[in-house]
Every structure is written in structure tokens, then in C-alpha cells.
Design a protein around this nucleic acid. Sequence first.
DNA 1: CTGAAAGCGCTTACAG
DNA 2: CTGAAAGCGCTTACAG
Lengths: 334, 334
Amino acid sequence: MSVRRIAAKAGVSIATVSRVLNNDPAVRAETRDKVLAVANQVGYVPTTGRRVKTQLAFCYTSEMSLAHRFDATLLEGIVRGADEAQFEIVIVNLLRDRKSNESYTQFFMRKGIRGVILRTNAESRDTCKQIAAEGFPHVVIAERFDDSAVNFIEGDSYPDSVRAVEYLISLGHRRIGFGMHNIADRDHADRRQGYRDALAKHKIPFQENYVFEYPWTMSGGATVMEMLMNMKNRPTAIYFADPMLAVGGVKKAVESGVHVPRDISIIGFDDTDVRFSVHPTLTAVCQDAAGLGFEAASWLASSLEQPGEMRLQKRVPTFFEINHSTAPPREAGP
Amino acid sequence: MSVRRIAAKAGVSIATVSRVLNNDPAVRAETRDKVLAVANQVGYVPTTGRRVKTQLAFCYTSEMSLAHRFDATLLEGIVRGADEAQFEIVIVNLLRDRKSNESYTQFFMRKGIRGVILRTNAESRDTCKQIAAEGFPHVVIAERFDDSAVNFIEGDSYPDSVRAVEYLISLGHRRIGFGMHNIADRDHADRRQGYRDALAKHKIPFQENYVFEYPWTMSGGATVMEMLMNMKNRPTAIYFADPMLAVGGVKKAVESGVHVPRDISIIGFDDTDVRFSVHPTLTAVCQDAAGLGFEAASWLASSLEQPGEMRLQKRVPTFFEINHSTAPPREAGP
DNA sequence: CTGAAAGCGCTTACAG
DNA sequence: CTGAAAGCGCTTACAG
């Protein structure tokens, strides 16, 4: 009785109400305004009718927060990509109101969502696989899969992680630490592996106590730097494979009177431009998170316009940028 | 013929297709899977049917970017607030596909949106007023209005802007600069006014050339600091009323060998926690942007559940935090 | 420019 | 557990 109630209140037929809601230019302006006023007044919410067909979702499959700069930056690119393709982005928490026994396809269709951009981690990889198996339009962002049914786009930080550590070695460093967000995903595992492989390649023994896995915050970085400074045989350089850890690490060093890079070389990781916010500007492995988001959304939108099924399995290389936080160690040259 | 086509392909009746799409537990698992597989295969998009009733929109009414940390942080809070109230957030560009002659109410209803959180600036204030006049559920975030029909919630940075500048004066500073994002909104006008009023209160003449309005980026801040350092009668302190300007300013000073706070005192502005990312930690006027977003979304969601109309016109005070980037000027005590 | 009525696509009470 | 058919809410071709 929804359209009917508005019609009654406004003193017009339901046909006119429908025309107004669909912006039929034939309707007289006064009639239109009257109907819309009533609609807002009674808080009209259509229960059926034409549905929105232009929504993509940015889904987080686990506890995630836009407080993390990486996710905020991904979203920035996603929104731009969707906007260009005339789609809107809905932010959907997959942990919330999916009903019991509801498949992902059912859930997304109920929400009026055409395709999904999935943000995941180690614990929720199966969710991504299931969505892919159901055949719902999707693309996972910032993670990779061997399963050929799963579409993904991710930054490939392995080669530059090797390169970053080799750069430190080339400067003469032998005691090199590694700091990372304590998260279990492939992307981070790659960075750690890059560190280990670079050491191995140059026959530098790997030391468990040089590896720090902490929360991704500045205080996480400060903690790492503090622990590192208190070691008796302390590293002369460290590769922080997470942006805020590096920022917190530099801050702690400078605060403690430890000069960067004279006393310790620091390589950071950057999804945006935080490497420029500290002094000295960080040498860093960099990835364009906004670009990843943009490409994910653009691809998903265009795949919906194609009739056949499309596949995307893409790894975008990071880049390595040398700035002012790295130098030869004080004690010895190469 | 949409449901019909799936029904034909899957060899069931349209009733069964409908039941599957609505997750009726009576349907046999195999039937369900078969129907869903076909639905995904043909790329089924419902054209009518039950509509989503749980979407709020975060609307930008002008060129805006989530690249700006403030907006990203607002959104973080908005998403949390919406999530708690069982709503989803859609990000909507009001500049994009509103049809000609379509009212805002018509536009939002077409998109299936129940209420809107509006982000605005000086040029788009009228948009907000019009949406309010139409009676569509809304709340403007981070801007204020005299019009009693417009709901808003904003951070009130005036009192602490006065306080910040007075704090510099109390330390003995007399030549105090002011740097700000060159944006025309009331919030920023308040900060500039706070600066002027603090000077006036202490009978310090206002100098036009001590005021810098630049883009909100780090390089904007660096430019300001560079210009400031080249002045012959240069300020001994500056209040940057935008986060990244302050960060860029500190960076530039330190890079140039100008000690903070010995050579220049800097007060920043912080929406999140960037004041901690630089050395020295910034004395700053701080506002909880995520909190603003959370409250806006929570209020809007709850107002939709109420039968009558609700009003919100709220100003949330900032807070002033003294850290290590401020000290008495070198030349003279108070 | 608007209404009465047929129509459309999805949903659901009833039957088996 | 599924289908045939009535029903619901919105939309639209037709009439004036």
C-alpha cells in the first residue's frame, strides 16, 4: 500500500506517484513537488520496484579498518575507478548480516550488488575461493591465489624486497634487521622471504632475533627500534616492510639521539607518500595502492559489461626508491 | 523474462527460482545450487523485486578525494557507525549521474538510499540546503549552517585556535605566522579568525604577509616554510591549521637546519595521529574525525528508525595538546 | 498533464 | 520439496 498511501495523502493517483518517483517530465512541477514532499514526510521506502544495477561492493572478509592507511588508499582508487565506469561503491562487512545458510551469491543479490572487490587475509582466503567457485563476479585485491577460478590483482613486493636488502648489503651492511606487521598473508610472507633470500644469496647467516613482527602502528615501529637499540650486537640497518612501522622506527631513533642514516640505515615501505613525511626521507619499497584499487574496480566494471567470463590474475611490481635514510655503516665499508 | 529465463535453463518453475533467490530453506540443496549456478552463468540482474532498505550514502558535493586524510578518517568512522546500526555505506558522487531536472529526493530514491551524510564546502552549501528543504533525511558533516532545517555535526576549532595562538604569545612570541589550506569553508575561516582574534586580544598587529594559504599537501607546507624562512623579519612561530601543511613545514625546517622549536615554534592541526609521526611531536589543535563520522552515521541511522522528524545541530569541540614543537623564542622571553 | 486499467516481474499461499 | 496460479507493488500504454 505504499505508493497508494502517498497517492491518497497527495490527492493524486498511484500512476502519478510512480511518474514522480521516476522523474517523468510530463508531470506538472507543483504536482511533482507535492508528491515528493509527502513521500519524504511519510518516510517512504519502496519495497519493490526497479532496482539499482550499478553497485559494486568493497568487501572486507575479516576484521579490517579504514584506519589502516593501505586500505583507505585502496578505497580511494577503487572509488575513482568505479566512478569513471559509472558504478557506485558500497562498503560491505561480510562478517555481519549474511544469513545462516545463505550463499554469497544470494547475499550479494539481496543487497543489489553486481560484483565484489574482496579484501582478505590468510584466515579468510577460503571465503574468496568460495565466492569464485559460486561464479559471482569478483576480484581479490592485494592477495594472490593459485586457484585459476579466483581473480586477483596484487602488488608484487618480493623482487624489490630482495633488492632493498641487497642494496643494504652493497653499502657494506652485514647485520640487517627486518620489521613487519604481524599479519599472515602472502604479501607479507613474500617480503620476509625476500629478506631471507637476499641474505642467503650473499651468504649472510639468517638470525631469528633480527626479525620483528609487530602491529602495524607507529608505536609498533618504536618498540622494534627500542628493542633493536638494546641488542648487544645490534643491526646496522633494518628493512621495515610496513609504512607506519618505518615511520615509528625513524621517529624513535631520532628521539633517542640515534642518527639516521649515520648510526642506522632504515629502509621503509610505502603505499602512498609517507616516506616523504619524515626526516630523513625514507629509502623505501613503494607500491601504488590507489592504482591497484583503481585497476581492480575498472576491471570488475568492464567485466560486467562483457558477455563471457573474464579472468584477471595480475601482479603489479613495486618500485624501489633510494632516498636519504640509508648509508654505509659507520664501522666498515663494503 | 528474467526469472523465467533462469527457470527454463535450470528446468524448474519460476516459483522455485524466486525461492532460491530468497534463500527459502525448503528448497533442496541441489536444486538451489543448480539455480544459483545458472543465475551467475547468465549474469542475472534483478530488474524489480524487493529493494535494499539499509543503505546510507556518503555524498561528496564537490571535487573531493579520499586521498585527503581527513575525508578518509571521517569515512572510517562513518562506516563503523553505519555497521553498528546495521546499515551499509554507499559512496555517491553528487556531481555525476543526477539526471537533469531530477530532485535530490528522486535521485536518492532511485539509488535506493535511505539517508545521506553530506560533505561540502563553500561552493556546494546550497546543495545541502536544498536537500534539507526537500525534507530528505540528511546530516552535513564538518560544516555548519544557520538554517534550522539543515542537520549538521562539525568540529568547533575556533576556541582552540585562539588558545593555540595565545599559548605562543604566552611563550613570548610576537611574530606569529598562520598557514592554512586554501579552501573556502566555515571551518577554516574559523581557524583563521581564531588566529586574528588571539592577536587582537593581545594587541599584536595583524600582518597580511604572515598569512599563508596553500594546498593541503606536505609540499604546500614546505613552500610555506621556505617563504617564511626567507622573510627578513621572519616569524618566530607559526600555527598551521591543516595536518599535512604542518608535517611538510616541520620537515622543511629540519631539512634546512632550522631547529624546531629552538629556531621556530610550530603548532599543527591533527585529525588523527599525524602529530606523532614527525620529530619533534607536534603541539597541535586536534579533532577526532573518526568520532565525528561515527556520530553522524549513528544519528542518521537512529533518526530513520524514529517516526517523527529529528534535528541535529552539533558542534564538537577540538582539544589542544602541547607537545615538543613549541618553546619560547630564542631572542626574548615573555 | 492526469487517471483507470492492463501489464510486468517477482513473491507466496495452496495443493500435492 | 516443487509447481500452478493468485496476488502484490510498481510501471506504462491508452484515453481524455
